[in-house]
C-alpha cells in the first residue's frame, strides 16, 4: 500500500482578507499512481487564477509502494473547507479526508472509495458513475445531482450520508443508491429517472417531476407534492409504508416514480 498524505499548511490559502480555494482534482490515487515523491510534490494545482506546486500549499509525505492505483491511499489533513474537488473523476484507490471538505468532493467519480470524516460542501458525488462515497457528517446541496445544463445526475455507485443533506439532492438521478441517515432538505430526487434514495429522517417536497426510481422516506414528509397518487399500503422489513406514484404533473404516461412514506 502506498500512502500519500497532503496536510494543508496553516494559512496557505490566505490572500489578503480572503481565503482562496484550491482545486485538488489532480491529486487522486489513479492520477498519482506511478509518480515519485518529487513528481508528486511538484504537481501543479490551481489556486485562484494561478497554478502552484502542490508543495507550496500542502506538506506532502509519501510512504510504501503500490502495484496499481487500487493500492494507493491518499489522505488529506488540515482545515479542508476551502479544498475543492477532492477525488474528482477518481476511478480507483482510496481517499480519506480528515475533516470537513469543500465543494465537488467525489464529483464525476467512477470507482474507488472516498471517506469524509466531517461534512461535505455542495455538489458532493455530483454526476457520480461508480464507487463509494461515505460522508460522516452532513452533505450540502446538490449531493449526487448534476452540473448546470446537464439532464443526468448520478448513474451508479453508493453514497452514505450519516448526517443531514441539503436541497435538490439526486436531481436527475438515473442509477445507484443514496442513504441519508438524517433529514433531506427541499426537493430530494427532483427530476429523478432511476436509482434509489433512502431518507431515514424527514424530507421536504420529495420526488417532484419524478419519472422513475424509488424514494423511501422513513420520517415525515413536509409539503407532500400535490401531484402524486396514493396507490396502496405495502410492508417492507416489517414496517408499513404508503406507496405513491408520480409525478402526474409530467403526465400519466411518464409518471413512473415510486415514493414510499412510512405510515
Amino acid at each position: 500500500m502506498r500512502q500519500i498524505v497532503f496536510k494543508l499548511r496553516d494559512g496557505a490559502l490566505r490572500s489578503g482578507a480572503a481565503e482562496v480555494p484550491v482545486d485538488v482534482s489532480p491529486l487522486t490515487p489513479d492520477k498519482l499512481f506511478g509518480e515519485g515523491e518529487d513528481e508528486i510534490k511538484s504537481t501543479k494545482v490551481w489556486w485562484g487564477n494561478r497554478q502552484e506546486n502542490v508543495e507550496r500549499i500542502f506538506e506532502v509525505s509519501v510512504s510504501g509502494d503500490a502495484s496499481g492505483a487500487e493500492e494507493v491511499k491518499v489522505v488529506f489533513e488540515g482545515e479542508l473547507r476551502k479544498v475543492k474537488r477532492i477525488g474528482y473523476e477518481m476511478s480507483a484507490g482510496e481517499i480519506v479526508a480528515e475533516g470537513s471538505v469543500g465543494m465537488h468532493c467525489g464529483a464525476r467519480m467512477r470507482g474507488g472509495r472516498i471517506t469524509v470524516n466531517g461534512s461535505a460542501d455542495c455538489w458532493a458525488g455530483c454526476e457520480m458513475h461508480g464507487g463509494t462515497l461515505i460522508i460522516e457528517g452532513d452533505a450540502g446541496d446538490n449531493l449526487c445531482a448534476c452540473y448546470r445544463g446537464e439532464t443526468t445526475g448520478m448513474t451508479g455507485g453508493t453514497v452514505v450520508v450519516k448526517g443531514n443533506a441539503g436541497e435538490c439532492i439526486a436531481q436527475y438521478m438515473a442509477g445507484g443508491e443514496i442513504t441519508v441517515r438524517g433529514n433531506a432538505d427541499m426537493l430530494a430526487g427532483l427530476d429523478m429517472k432511476g436509482g434509489k434514495i433512502v431518507i431515514e429522517g424527514d424530507a421536504v417536497m420529495p420526488g417532484a417531476n419524478m419519472s422513475g426510481g424509488e424514494i423511501i422516506v422513513k420520517g415525515k414528509v413536509i409539503d407532500m407534492m400535490p401531484s402524486f397518487k396514493y396507490e396502496e399500503t405495502v410492508t417492507i422489513d416489517g414496517e408499513e409504508y404508503k406507496k405513491y406514484r408520480g409525478d402526474f404533473a409530467i403526465g400519466e404516461k411518464k409518471a413512473k416514480g415510486t415514493l414510499l412514506i412510512r405510515s
Partner: peptide, 12 residues
C-alpha cells in the same frame, strides 16, 4: 412550487 405542480396536474 406546489401550486405550479398542482396546476400542471389539473391542466393535464
Amino acid at each position: 412550487f406546489l401550486v405550479f405542480s398542482a396546476l400542471r396536474a389539473i391542466l393535464r
